[in-house]
């Protein structure tokens, strides 16, 4: 019977890497060789996964420069080497409308989000949330003073109006 690997007895689980030594160079050379032996499909899968993480991080981080949902779509098509007109035809959309989605002139609606998620193997809400985040940032930067709204003030004003009506 195969012996089960023993659990760590100490908290530290690594040792320092010997950067710059011949052993290190040899280690990197092995990995470089593995990297170069990746097939085109493996390279695409890697890039697609990296792009998915980029979308997730875009959502998680505040204050990053805007990237439209359409920009991400363009990146996906670029990685897969799929022409926009063929993509539009495949998903039953006019090429001009797809172009508008990519430029951010048309939204990625729920239907498109479900199609993209199915094709690129991730959560459809990623597309919806990215659009919502961008839209929210645009509205916020438009200058409307949202801090003037207060629940306390709303309730006080309602109460005052009620009392006034009662007096009358």
């Amino acid at each position: 019977m195969k012996k089960k690997a023993e659990e760590p007895k100490e908290g530290a689980l690594t040792r320092g890497m010997d950067y710059g030594t011949p052993g290190f160079d040899e280690f990197q050379a092995v990995l470089l060789q593995k990297s170069r032996s990746r097939t085109k499909t493996q390279k695409q899968q890697l890039e697609l996964l990296a792009l998915r993480f980029e979308m997730e991080d875009y959502l998680a981080l505040a204050g990053n420069p805007e990237k439209k949902a359409g920009d991400f779509l363009k990146d996906f098509l670029g990685i897969l080497d799929v022409q926009q007109k063929y993509f539009a035809k495949y998903i039953g959309m006019k090429p001009s409308n797809l172009s508008k989605v990519i430029k951010g002139e048309r939204p990625v609606n729920n239907d498109l989000a479900l199609i993209f998620a199915r094709l690129f193997n991730h959560d459809p809400m990623l597309w919806i949330k990215i659009q919502a985040k961008n839209e929210m940032n645009r509205i916020r930067s438009a200058g409307k003073k949202y801090e003037t709204y207060s629940l306390g003030e709303l309730l006080r004003e309602q109460e005052a109006a009620y009392l006034l009506r009662k007096k009358k």
Binding site: T14, L32, S35, L46, L49, A50, F53
Partner: peptide, 23 residues
């Protein structure tokens, strides 16, 4: 590691403590 640009994208290297390699 997927954010690394270039040929090492997707690789994560490190040195294990001897007794933990199997683990």
């Amino acid at each position: 590691s997927f954010k690394t640009e270039g040929e090492y994208r997707g690789f994560l290297g490190f040195v294990s403590k001897t007794e933990l390699i199997h683990w």
